[in-house]
Design a protein around this nucleic acid. Structure first.
Lengths: 206, 206
DNA sequence: ACCTGAACACCGTTCAAGT
DNA sequence: ACCTGAACACCGTTCAAGT
C-alpha cells in the first residue's frame, strides 16, 4: 500500500529508466486510468513538469511502457519446432506478457494502433508464420490478424478481471457459469487454432 | 464548420435522442478525443450539468453511441445463403458500420470490452456461424474471435486515417507502398478468411 | 543534466435550486 | 420534465528560471 512512495527515491534526480519503472508500478497497482502524469510525479517526489524532461509527452511514455511489457513475451525455445508450434508458443508468450501487468493489453494495443511502440510482437509473430514457408505479405497479414485477436481477447479478459474485483459486472458480461479462468484459456487457444488452421488450409487449397 | 451549432436547437429542452444524435455528430466531425461532455453541452446550448439528466455518466452515453453505430451494421439479405457467405456478409456489414463514423471502432470496442453495449454484433455473428451447424459454445467463441479481429483491424485503420490526415504518421506505420485503401480491404478479407476456413477445417477434423 | 514554480486551458461529476 | 449556477477535484502541457 505504501510501496509506491517508499520504493521510490526521496530526493529527486531521476533517470528515464526510473520514471518508466515507477510508471509500470503504478500501472500494475492502480491501473491505467490512475496512471496520470501528476500522480507519477508525486510518486517520484517531483513536480509534474519534471517528467517532460524525460519524455516529450504522455503518449511517448506509454509507448515506452508498451515496449517494456512486451519485451518479456518471448518463448523459451524456438528452434527445432514446426511453424504451427512456434506460432502457438509466440501467441502464448505474448498473452502471458500482457497479463503480467494490469491493463497491459490496453496499453499495448493503444500504442500499437498508433504505430508507435510494440512492433516487436508483430515481428516475432510474422517470423514464426514465415518459418512455415509462407510469403512475406501473407505472413504479415496472418500475424496482424493474430495480434488483433490476442489484444482484443486479453483486453476483454483484463477488463473483466477489473470489474469482477470491483463487483460491478454488467448484466450479460458473463452469460454462463463456464467463464472461469480455464474457460478463458481455452477460448484463447480456440481463436488461435482457428487462425492457424485457417492458414494451413489456405496453403493447401491454393 | 458552423454545422455543430446551427443544426442544434437554439433554446434548450432536449430529449435523450437529441443528445445522442448531437454526440454522434461531434464524434464524426471532430473525433473521440474532442467528444467531451462540456463540448457536447455547448453544442446543445446547455450547461454541462444538464447532460446528467439524460445520461448518468459519459460511459453510458458512449454505450448508447456504440449501439447506434452498430445498429446499421446489417447485411441486405441473409436467407438462402450458406453459413460461410452469411458470416462474411455480417463481418463486412459490421466493418462498414464502424467505418461510417469517425473513431467508430474505438467507441464500440471500448464499450464492448466493458460488456456494456454492442452486444448486437456478437449475437448476429454467433447466429451466422451457428447456421453452419456448429454448437452454441463453438459458435460463440468463433464469433468472439471474429469480433476481436474486426474491432482491432478497423481501429487500426481509423487511427491511420486520422494520423494520415494530420500528416503525423509515425515511422514504419506504413511499411510499404501497398497500404492503399484496396490493400486495407484485402487485408481485412484475409483475416476473415483465415477464421472462417479455420472453422470449416475444425469441423472436418473433429 | 535535471528540477521548481506558476500558470494555461481544460476535464467529468455533483447538487441545490429554479421553471 | 428539464435546466442553471456554482462548485469540487482533478487533468496534460508549457516555460522561464533555478542548481
Amino acid at each position: 500500500m505504501a510501496a509506491t512512495e517508499s520504493a521510490s527515491a526521496r530526493n529527486a534526480r531521476h533517470s528515464r529508466d526510473d520514471v518508466a519503472e515507477t510508471a509500470l508500478r503504478i500501472l500494475d497497482e492502480y491501473g491505467l486510468p490512475d496512471l496520470t502524469m501528476r500522480r507519477l510525479a508525486a510518486a517520484l517526489d517531483v513536480q509534474p513538469s519534471a517528467l517532460y524532461w524525460h519524455f516529450p509527452n504522455k503518449q511517448t511514455l506509454l509507448a515506452e511502457l508498451a515496449d517494456r511489457i512486451v519485451a518479456r513475451g518471448r518463448p523459451e525455445a524456438t528452434d527445432g519446432l514446426d511453424w504451427v508450434q512456434r506460432t502457438r508458443d509466440e501467441t502464448a508468450a505474448l498473452r502471458d506478457a500482457l497479463l503480467a501487468y494490469r491493463d497491459g493489453a490496453e496499453v499495448v494495443s493503444s500504442t500499437f494502433a498508433l504505430g508507435l511502440g510494440a512492433s516487436a510482437p508483430l515481428a516475432r509473430l510474422t517470423a514464426a508464420v514465415e518459418s512455415g514457408g509462407f510469403d512475406a505479405e501473407t505472413s504479415r497479414r496472418a500475424a496482424t490478424a493474430l495480434l488483433h485477436f490476442i489484444l482484443g481477447h486479453v483486453s476483454h479478459e483484463q477488463q473483466r478481471l477489473q470489474y469482477d474485483s470491483l463487483g460491478v459486472l454488467a448484466d450479460g458480461a458473463t452469460p454462463d457459469a463456464l467463464d472461469s479462468d480455464g474457460e478463458q484459456t481455452d477460448s484463447f487457444a480456440f481463436g488461435v487454432t482457428l487462425l492457424v488452421e485457417g492458414l494451413a488450409h489456405h496453403r493447401v487449397t491454393r
